[in-house]
């Protein structure tokens, strides 16, 4: 059994890293909003999904106009990423303005309900726009960056088999790493980032220090949503086919990653995302083997939720978070 697990390990690592990178960036969006508003932004998964659709729509449009053939593919991708992230960023700001800001002093339950409403609304909005334009809501993007590579793990030791990946995987991982470094720099080193941390710590005191709290909250939503939207594009390029309902479960798992890393903690979310991606891929590949065929790969979602529940019970502050006691 161990030999078989070792055989598939390199491939699991590569796939898990790609999936984990996606979880990590989405988890950032959840964790930033939670850190600043103490609100689970259910709509974040849908922003990711909308980003994927906007990206694919742009790519299809550019193919139709012949631009995609005329310019280098990487340039086209960067263009799409930038435009998509700006659009989804403003989308996030709009959602905050319309659905969350009027409820800032309402009981938390009400805000959560509003967030679920936004999430469902967005799903259907994207569904009917796509279906209206294309006749079918499942969308397949133009295939890009499809060259296969192999890392010759087998040359290191015969107990490993080779791992295969596409160019898009490299692009995905590189862009995610850049985004994370950029965000980390922004939050920790710039004045805006400092304001953001201040608002997350204590909204009222921050406003007394002449920080415009509403503007900072909008900025947080903008950044989180822009990152989420850009990840959506990368997801679409990596996995090919998208539908309007991918965001919900993926968002849920990304939230799990955020909880795993300690909610409100940006570096924790990154680590949690990668960890969850690796665990999930490992489970998908080996669950059948480990349990003697009782559980198969179809239980990988259950596995992710089980992690969430276990973390919440035994270490609700997450692996890298600080325990907070509630004060009266």
């Amino acid at each position: 059994m161990v030999a078989e697990i070792l055989q598939s390990l390199p491939q699991v690592l590569v796939d898990g890293l790609a999936l984990g990178a996606i979880y990590a960036v989405i988890a950032l969006g959840y964790t930033m909003v939670y850190g600043i508003l103490e609100l689970i932004n259910f709509a974040h998964g849908e922003i990711f999904m909308a980003g994927a659709f906007i990206g694919v729509a742009m790519l299809i449009l550019m193919t139709g106009m012949g631009w995609l053939a005329a310019m280098p593919a990487v340039l086209a991708l960067i263009l799409v990423l930038v435009v998509t992230s700006i659009l989804t960023g403003f989308m996030g700001v709009g959602i905050e303005r319309m659905a969350y800001r009027p409820l800032r002093n309402a009981p938390k339950l009400i805000t959560l309900i509003s967030a679920i409403g936004v999430s469902f609304l967005l799903q259907d909005l994207v569904r009917f726009i796509t279906e209206y334009k294309r006749g079918n809501y499942i969308l397949t993007g133009p295939s890009m960056f499809n060259e296969q590579f192999a890392i010759k793990f087998s040359s290191i030791s015969s107990s490993f088999s080779d791992a295969f990946f596409k160019t898009s995987t490299i692009i995905l991982i590189i862009s995610v790493v850049l985004m994370m470094i950029g965000l980390d720099f922004f939050v920790n080193k710039t004045k805006w980032g400092m304001a953001m941390r201040a608002v997350a710590q204590d909204r009222e005191t921050a406003s007394l220090m002449s920080i415009n709290v509403n503007k900072i909250i909008s900025l947080t939503f903008f950044i989180g949503s822009a990152l989420g939207g850009a990840t959506g594009v990368l997801f679409a390029v990596q996995y090919g086919t998208i539908d309007p309902y991918i965001g919900f479960i993926l968002g849920l798992k990304a939230f799990t990653a955020a909880v795993l890393g300690g909610i409100g903690n940006i570096r924790g979310a990154m680590a949690g995302g990668i960890m969850l991606g690796l665990l999930e891929m490992f489970a998908a590949a080996n669950l059948q083997l480990l349990t003697g065929g009782i559980f198969g790969a179809e239980y990988k979602d259950v596995f992710a939720f089980a992690i969430l529940i276990i973390v919440l019970i035994f270490k609700p502050e997450g692996l890298f978070g600080k325990a907070v006691t509630e004060k009266v």
Partner: peptide, 23 residues
């Protein structure tokens, strides 16, 4: 257009109800 059939718009309607009533 078939895509706009109200029978398919449940999610939209429910989402809108949730937001409007919450606010």
């Amino acid at each position: 257009p078939e895509a706009l059939a109200p029978a398919k718009m449940q999610r939209f309607i429910f989402g809108a109800i949730l937001i409007i009533f919450a606010i």
